[in-house]
Design a protein around this nucleic acid. Structure first.
Length: 275
DNA sequence: TTCCCGTCCA
DNA sequence: TGGACGGGAA
């Protein structure tokens, strides 16, 4: 690993780094996207946007971001929000656990950090729903810290521009990514990288497939879960029998139990509702 | 039908 | 380390 890093970096001429850097910055200057969460460095807003952007296209996050921020404008409101409204604001984004984790993370920040937003990757990664990527993204976009942010698109840019083999890990890649960040311009630079990466052709993207693969959605438990939550969003409360009658999945009992265990739903007086 | 996107947990 | 976790658009 160590030797590999060094080999990787020494293979890259300084000129290559400079050339690629210039190209990406020029691209951003001409074609950079004007996204709602780029108008702010409010850590709360950045936190919300980054949770939304996990496994979710920009176009879809845009549609939900404004409304979410409007209804839940700060940590205090997010910490207090009830699950039904939270899930309503999230609905359509997918991966609903992210919404619960976002609220849980906000609660930890308010309680344990006294509302002072953690500005350290290790502290951020201890929060629910925040992993390697999101911690780096928050530090770069909210605090302009010179940390390498590597999502799948940025990974593609680096691999492709430098002709690096797809077997290289993000950890190894981070040594190069780190060196490319212009002094004092981490947020701008990573916006540029992301826009450049998003604009890569489908052919190039196919050369660097996602690190994780998805099982089918049609007929899946995931689909049934989403459906159950949407029913409860609409009907407020109904009996378990009524609810499960509307579901055709053969594992619906298990799925129901799991949603309960994850605190999406609760049962009181024989009525099921969003928790 | 395939594509697009990180985090968590066993 | 591999599987679970959404849902709209192409």
């Amino acid at each position: 690993m160590k030797t590999r890093e060094i080999t990787l970096i020494s293979d890259l001429e300084k000129n290559d780094l400079r050339r690629v850097k210039r190209k990406i910055l020029r691209f951003y200057h001409s074609f950079g996207r004007d996204l709602p969460w780029r108008k702010t460095d409010n850590p709360y807003h950045i936190l919300v946007s980054e949770f939304m952007l996990q496994q979710t296209q920009v176009s879809r996050a845009i549609e939900h971001y404004e409304q979410f921020i409007k209804k839940l404008p700060d940590f205090e409101s997010l910490v207090k929000v009830r699950t039904p409204l939270l899930l309503k604001l999230w609905s359509g984004l997918g991966y609903n656990s992210r919404a619960l984790r976002l609220r849980a993370a906000a609660r930890v920040i308010v309680k344990n950090h006294g509302g002072k937003f953690p500005e350290d990757a290790d502290m951020l990664k201890k929060l629910p729903g925040i992993g390697e990527y999101t911690s780096a993204a928050i530090l770069a976009f909210a605090f302009n810290k010179p940390v390498p942010v590597i999502d799948i698109n940025i990974r593609r840019v680096l691999l492709h521009e430098f002709g690096i083999d797809n077997s290289v890990s993000n950890e190894e890649l981070s040594f190069i990514a780190q060196r490319m960040i212009p002094r004092g311009k981490s947020a701008l630079w990573h916006n540029a990288l992301m826009d450049y990466g998003a604009a890569l052709s489908a052919e190039i993207k196919k050369l660097y497939p996602p690190l994780t693969k998805q099982s089918k959605f049609r007929g899946s438990r995931r689909e049934a879960r989403g459906y159950i939550l949407r029913i409860l969003l609409k009907k407020k409360a109904l009996s378990k029998q009524e609810l499960l009658q509307m579901i055709s999945h053969r594992e619906k009992e298990k799925i129901f139990a799991q949603l309960k265990a994850e605190s999406f739903i609760s049962v009181k007086n024989g009525l099921v509702r969003l928790k």
